[in-house]
Amino acid sequence: MATVKINNKTYTVPELNFTHSKRMEQMGLPVEGLISRKYIFTAVSAFVAIVVPCDAEQADYLVEQHIEGGGNIEEIYEAYANAVQESRFFRKLLNVDEEKPKNTKKSAQQKTE
């Protein structure tokens, strides 16, 4: 199970699901912005609110304290990005291919026929 350190405390990252996606959206993170660095601050805030768990104001406070204490927002964003990529729900939602061809030799042979 993945963990993330926020403001010198380690939290377990849950597998992100539909409920989490609604919370992210309510906090201002659009679905099309899930994997865009354009929304890094919103994504980090929403992610912290989910992981801690807490409300948006407390999440923002924790992120601010984390940065002021020498932490890096990139560490939290990386944990968020990993959680999105590892989430079965988000993989399906974002159409990320989970299966790769099992036998590439056979696939190549079928193309030539």
Rank of each mutant, 00 (worst) to 15 (best):
K22M: 15
V4S: 07
K100V: 11
V4A: 11
L94P: 09
Y61N: 07
D60N: 11
K105R: 07
T10C: 05
R37W: 00
K100G: 06
N82Y: 03
E113N: 14
Q58E: 12
T3K: 15
N17G: 15
S21A: 14
R88K: 13
A83F: 02
E78Q: 13
Q110K: 04
I35L: 07
D55C: 06
V63M: 13
R23K: 10
V51P: 02
R91I: 03
F41L: 02
V31S: 03
A56D: 11
G69V: 09
E86N: 15
V13K: 10
R23Q: 06
K92F: 11
C54Q: 05
K100D: 04
P53N: 07
E98K: 04
A43R: 08
F90I: 01
D55L: 00
P14I: 08
S87A: 12
I50Y: 00
Q58N: 04
V44F: 06
F89Y: 15
N103A: 09
E78L: 09
R91A: 05
A81H: 06
A108H: 08
T12Q: 14
V51L: 01
V48Y: 06
P30Y: 10
N17K: 14
Q85H: 05
L29K: 03
I67Y: 04
R88P: 05
N72M: 13
T12W: 02
I6W: 00
L16W: 06
E74F: 13
N82C: 02
N8E: 14
F89I: 13
I6G: 11
A79L: 08
A108G: 01
E78P: 02
K102Y: 08
S36P: 00
T42W: 01
P101V: 09
S21D: 13
E57L: 07
T112Q: 12
E68L: 13
S36C: 05
Y77R: 09
E74N: 11
Y77V: 03
G71W: 06
E74R: 05
T112E: 12
G71H: 09
T12I: 14
Y77M: 09
A49W: 05
V13L: 08
N17C: 15
K102D: 13
V48R: 09
R91Q: 12
Q109R: 04
V52M: 06
E15W: 08
Y39C: 03
R88D: 14
